[in-house]
C-alpha cells in the first residue's frame, strides 16, 4: 500500500481501506439481533495510512447500542480519561465522555447513555467560533485547534450536547499525543491520534475488550461498513435529531 503514489492513490485509498475493513472484521463479532451481526473491536478495523491526509470520502462515526450498556459501567469513561490524560470528574474538570442517566417517568424505563462530542456534519461550534479554531476535519471529525483558540467559550454556548469543556487550570504531564492546556476549549476528538495511526477510539476498544461491546466505530459513508448497515437495519437514532445537525454518533434503543 505504501508504494502507491499520486492522485490514483488518493482515489484508491477509500476502496482499499474498505476492503481492508471487511477482511479485518473477523474478530469480535457480536449478535445484535437475530440475523444481524455487528463487528466490533477487531483492531485495527480501520486504517488511515500514516503520513496521508484525512480522507474526505470517509465519515467516521459511532453507534452505541444502549441495550448492551449496563448500568454502572463506566469503562468507556475511564478509558477515555486514561487515553487523553484527563483527570477525575470535578467541578471544573473536563469530561469528554459522560454517562447520562435517563429515566422515562411515564414508562419507568431507565437507560445510561454515553454522551460525547457528536461530531456533527453541521457543527454549531464550528459555525460560531470566531477564529476558526473549532473546525471539522475532512473525515468528519470535529476538533479544536488549540493554537488559535482564544478561549471565548462561544462554542460551549452553542453546543446542544454540552460536549465541550474548558480547561480551567494549568496542565502538566499531558499525553504527548494529546496536547491540552489552560484557557482553551476541548472535547472528544474521537481519539483522532489513534485513528490516524489506524486504531480505534479508546472507548470503543475498552468497551469491546472488557464490557458488552456496545460501541461500533466505522465509516458512515461506506454502505457496506458494519456501522452503516446496523444503523440502516435498526433505524438508529441521534440525540436532538430535531436540530438538524446530523450527528455522527448514533444510538440504538435510545
Amino acid at each position: 500500500m505504501t508504494s502507491e503514489t499520486g492522485s490514483r492513490d488518493e482515489r484508491a485509498s477509500g476502496a482499499s481501506r474498505r476492503s481492508f475493513l471487511k477482511s479485518a472484521a473477523g474478530v469480535g463479532v457480536t449478535m445484535l439481533a437475530p440475523g444481524v451481526v455487528l463487528y466490533a473491536a477487531a483492531p485495527p478495523a480501520v486504517a488511515q495510512r500514516a503520513g496521508r491526509p484525512a480522507d474526505s470520502k470517509i465519515r467516521w462515526g459511532l453507534l452505541v447500542d444502549l441495550n448492551k450498556c449496563p448500568p454502572g459501567c463506566d469503562l468507556c469513561v475511564t478509558a477515555c480519561a486514561d487515553e487523553n490524560g484527563l483527570h477525575r470528574p470535578g467541578a471544573h474538570e473536563s469530561q469528554w465522555i459522560r454517562k447520562v442517566n435517563v429515566h422515562d417517568p411515564k414508562t419507568d424505563v431507565r437507560r445510561e447513555v454515553p454522551v460525547m462530542c457528536q461530531h456533527c456534519a453541521m457543527p454549531a461550534c464550528v459555525d460560531v467560533c470566531p477564529t476558526g479554531a473549532s473546525f471539522k476535519r475532512a473525515d468528519g471529525i470535529v476538533l479544536v485547534d488549540r493554537h488559535i483558540c482564544i478561549g471565548c467559550r462561544y462554542c460551549m454556548m452553542a453546543c446542544p450536547y454540552q460536549a465541550r469543556s474548558f480547561v480551567h487550570e494549568p496542565q502538566e504531564n499531558q499525553r504527548p499525543e494529546v496536547p491540552r492546556g489552560v484557557g482553551t476549549a476541548e472535547a472528544c476528538s474521537l481519539c483522532v491520534h489513534r485513528i490516524d495511526a489506524g486504531r480505534m477510539p479508546a472507548c470503543v476498544e475498552a468497551c469491546a475488550a472488557r464490557a458488552g461491546g456496545a460501541m461500533v466505530f466505522g465509516d458512515l459513508n461506506d454502505p457496506s461498513s458494519a456501522i452503516a448497515k446496523a444503523i440502516g437495519t435498526h433505524r438508529a437514532t441521534t440525540i436532538r435529531a430535531d436540530l438538524g445537525l446530523d450527528p455522527a454518533v448514533h444510538y440504538l434503543s435510545l
Binding site: P89, Q95, V100, N101, H103, D104, K106, V115, Y161, Q162
Partner: peptide, 14 residues
C-alpha cells in the same frame, strides 16, 4: 434539553 420529556442526571450537570 438532550432528552425531552425525560428525567436526566449525570456527573456533568445534566
Amino acid at each position: 434539553l438532550l432528552f425531552p420529556g425525560m428525567e436526566v442526571s449525570s456527573s456533568f450537570g445534566d
